[in-house]
Design a protein around this nucleic acid. Structure first.
Lengths: 160, 160
DNA sequence: AGAGTAAGTTCATCTACTGAACTTACTCTG
DNA sequence: CAGAGTAAGTTCAGTAGATGAACTTACTCT
């Protein structure tokens, strides 16, 4: 298929897209909500072909989203778990969750919700501006370059 | 490639994944940060094959994320723009942006940032619980069923 | 001894993405 | 008025990658 790569693109969306790579990746990562997972478990639950699953898991380990741990030596058996980076990626899945729940189901929303593990309260995710804590709106935003802090820029390079 | 579909899966992540479908979709949608876009413009900026772009745009229109508008009749010329649903999807891209910026670039972060269109202030997106406004953490969450509100459930079906 | 299990690998087949060239219907320029 | 230019695709052959089914390995359990 000669897949085009974006892992050196300057846009964060492009690199994250490249990281996902295909539609199985988010679904595989979704499974780790419940904790560590094993190969057979993932294969059965997702219905993905074993070859594809094997490839994806390898790539997710290489990319640092999952770690592979031997949970018994004889015969060698493994499980996969989220790394810190993988835990961080779950915020993307949470945003997908919120969008899907609102726009891809009927009025009643999805028959599956995220709950607080302790209180059981339903968790609805929203994406907000970290400063104002207001929901972000694409129409109010534009692209920009990070203006370097003054100390990092030699005088000669600064704008007059 | 016999792509597996998830558009009737009960999980919001699965349906949203199906909506994206491939790695071009997020990048195409990314381009609409700047407003309406035309075919040629997208093709040049993204370097995507014309056939693939054509297919993706058609699907995004069918799925209701983009609208196609004729901006001149003779010869007929078109532009695409985000619908309300497409605008909502941008929160997913914002979450991807934040993840990519933090984890897929060096210490300095990405050379591209989102800014407030008016004030120029850098916008950093975070995904939070809509009630507590605290960042979500996958480790504190579990899967659940939405407990139906009392008025919707006939007495006979309720738990004792 | 024979069945069962976990974690893959291998293989032939099928399909979707790719780049390049082509099409259409108009406008613009010399 | 001929020829170049432009926008928005479509068509096509080649190929990389996904698919399901079967196979492998190395142990445990009955």
């Amino acid at each position: 298929m000669k897949r085009t790569r974006f892992d050196d693109d300057i846009c964060p969306v492009a690199r994250t897209t490249d990281l996902m790579g295909d539609s199985w990746t988010p679904l595989i990562l979704r499974e780790f909500l419940a904790g560590p997972r094993r190969f057979e478990q993932l294969q059965e639950r997702l219905g993905v072909s074993r070859a594809t699953l094997s490839q994806r898991l390898d790539r997710l380990v290489t990319d640092g989203l999952l770690a592979k741990r031997e949970y018994q030596p004889n015969p060698p058996r493994f499980e996969y778990l989220l790394t810190e980076k993988g835990i961080a990626f779950w915020s993307v899945l949470a945003a997908m969750w919120a969008f899907g729940d609102r726009w891809l189901f009927g009025e009643s929303g999805a028959p599956l919700v995220l709950k607080d593990r302790e209180t059981g309260r339903i968790v609805r995710s929203i994406v907000v501006d970290s400063q104002t804590r207001e929901p972000i709106d694409v129409r109010t935003m534009r692209l920009g370059r990070p203006s370097k802090s003054v100390t990092e820029v030699p005088l000669a390079e600064r704008e007059p």
